[in-house]
C-alpha cells in the first residue's frame, strides 16, 4: 500500500496548469470550441476578497476585485475583459445556486491535561453546545480529530491523539449521537495549532477538534 501511495503522489506532483491545458485541448477535439462561461469573484461572507485565475489556451485573466467577472466565449478566445458586475445582477443570475449554499460547518475544541485522554472539566462544558449544534443542523457528518503537544515521541503521540479522539467520540455516542456519522482521525504532534519546538508542553495543542457539518 505504501508503494501505491508514493507513486500516486509522484504522478500528482507533475500536475500543473499544463496538464489542464492538455485536458482542454483534448476536450476541444471532442466537443468543439466549448460553451460560453461566465465567472464571477464574490466577496467572502466576512468581506475578504480572494483571487481567481481564468486560463485557456488563448490567455489568462485574473479576477481579484469584488464582483469582478469575465466571460469566456470559447476555448478559441481569450477570456474577456474583466468587468465589475452589479451585486443585484449576480444575485439574479446565480439566485438558486446561492440559495442552496449550506451553512458553514461549526468547529469545537476539547482540551486535555498532559498525557491524558480525559477532557478537562472546562472543555466538557461545551459538549451540550456541540449536541445542540448537531441537532439544529440535522448533521449527518461529524469529524473528531485528535492532536497532542510536542512532548514525547511521534509514536506515543499518535497513539495518545487516537485515544483522545476515541474518548470524545464515546462521549458523543453516550449522549445519543449515531456512531455511524462520526468519523475519527488523529495526527499526533504533526498538526499543532500553535507551532512550538519539539519537546515543549503546550496546552492549546492538546486537543480534539470536533467539526459538525
Amino acid at each position: 500500500m505504501e508503494v501505491g501511495v508514493t507513486s500516486d503522489k509522484n504522478r500528482k506532483s507533475t500536475g500543473s496548469i499544463n496538464r489542464f491545458l492538455l485536458i482542454l485541448f483534448i476536450l476541444n477535439l471532442f466537443y468543439g470550441c466549448g460553451a460560453k462561461t461566465q465567472i464571477v469573484l464574490l466577496p467572502d461572507p466576512d468581506g475578504a476578497v480572494g483571487k481567481i485565475e481564468v486560463v485557456n489556451p488563448r490567455g489568462t485573466r485574473v479576477l481579484d476585485r469584488p464582483w469582478e467577472s469575465t466571460e469566456v466565449a470559447s476555448l478559441k478566445e481569450v477570456p474577456g475583459e474583466a468587468r465589475i458586475m452589479e451585486e443585484s445582477e449576480v444575485k439574479r443570475v446565480f439566485h438558486e445556486a446561492l440559495n442552496a449554499k449550506p451553512q458553514p460547518p461549526v468547529e469545537f475544541l476539547i482540551y486535555f491535561k498532559s498525557e491524558s485522554a480525559i477532557p478537562t472539566a472546562e472543555s466538557l462544558n461545551s459538549i451540550p453546545a456541540v449536541l445542540e449544534t448537531i441537532k439544529k443542523r440535522g448533521s449527518q457528518d461529524i469529524s473528531v480529530v485528535g492532536h497532542t503537544d510536542s512532548m514525547g515521541t511521534a509514536d506515543y503521540n499518535l497513539d495518545l491523539s487516537l485515544r483522545r479522539a476515541k474518548k470524545v467520540a464515546e462521549i458523543l455516542q453516550a449522549e445519543g449521537v449515531d456512531p455511524a456519522i462520526i468519523e475519527i482521525d488523529y495526527f499526533g504532534k504533526a498538526k499543532p495549532l500553535i507551532e512550538t519546538p519539539d519537546g515543549v508542553p503546550e496546552p492549546r495543542n492538546r486537543r480534539v477538534e470536533i467539526t459538525v457539518r
Binding site: I39, L42, L75
Partner: peptide
C-alpha cells in the same frame, strides 16, 4: 469549464 480552467486561490466564486 468547457472553455477555461479557473484556479481558485480564494475564496468565493460563481460560474455559469
Amino acid at each position: 469549464t468547457p472553455s477555461a480552467v479557473c484556479g481558485v486561490r480564494g475564496t468565493h466564486i460563481a460560474i455559469k
